[in-house]
């Protein structure tokens, strides 16, 4: 049906998350129509990103440098470390512009089913970092799934010896009506209620 080089391109594109056979075909045909320079730039960008982007040696956030911009930024509050699962979470939190502390990227969740034990996550480097830098607080920003809860429990327990450990609140979305919130979120929000300031 497709000539071999085109079939190969479609096959490669289809491996990307969220890309099915139809989208892969559309993308491949689009790529063929573009000028050579544009496609070279795309190929170069792919190679460069793969080659140059690695993990920050301090916080494990994605960066092209040995240490990421956030860790190097002198205006950030160095007494705060926010623990997240992956770099996407860092980006989401950065977009809020509310948080001015540092991050630590865990790289996954404890999940024996997927063969992920605590040793495979960036937990030891975190303990060493907390021991070394002595932050005033570590904020755990991990989703409340079964694996997330377990990871929170584990990390929280380890860190308590060194510093104050908090976790982000779970509950109602802003601007959302109570009556439209689902039962799980509502039950969770009730559990996490607090005194009116």
């Amino acid at each position: 049906m497709y000539t071999l080089p085109l079939a190969r391109l479609i096959e490669q594109l289809q491996r990307l998350p969220g890309v099915g056979p139809k989208t892969a075909q559309r993308l491949a045909l689009y790529i063929l129509q573009r000028p050579d320079t544009e496609i070279q730039a795309l190929a170069q960008a792919l190679m460069d990103a793969k080659e140059k982007v690695g993990q920050c040696s301090v916080c494990f956030h994605l960066t092209a440098d040995p240490i990421c911009e956030i860790c190097l930024d002198p205006t950030r509050d160095r007494h705060l470390i926010c623990l997240v699962i992956d770099s996407r979470d860092v980006i989401a939190l950065e977009k809020t512009r509310e948080y001015r502390g540092l991050y630590h990227v865990l790289g996954g969740l404890i999940s024996p089913m997927d063969g992920i034990s605590p040793e495979q996550l960036n937990i030891q480097p975190l303990i060493q970092r907390v021991h070394r830098e002595r932050p005033e607080e570590v904020i755990l920003a991990i989703s409340p799934s079964v694996e997330g809860e377990t990871t929170t429990l584990y990390v929280g327990h380890l860190l308590k010896a060194f510093t104050r450990v908090t976790r982000i609140a779970f509950g109602l979305p802003m601007g959302g009506d109570l009556e439209y919130a689902d039962e799980i979120t509502l039950a969770r929000a009730l559990e996490g209620r607090r005194e009116l300031d």
Partner: peptide, 10 residues
Amino acid sequence: QEELALWDAQ
């Protein structure tokens, strides 16, 4: 023991 205790708690 540590890892198992975690899942025991859950």
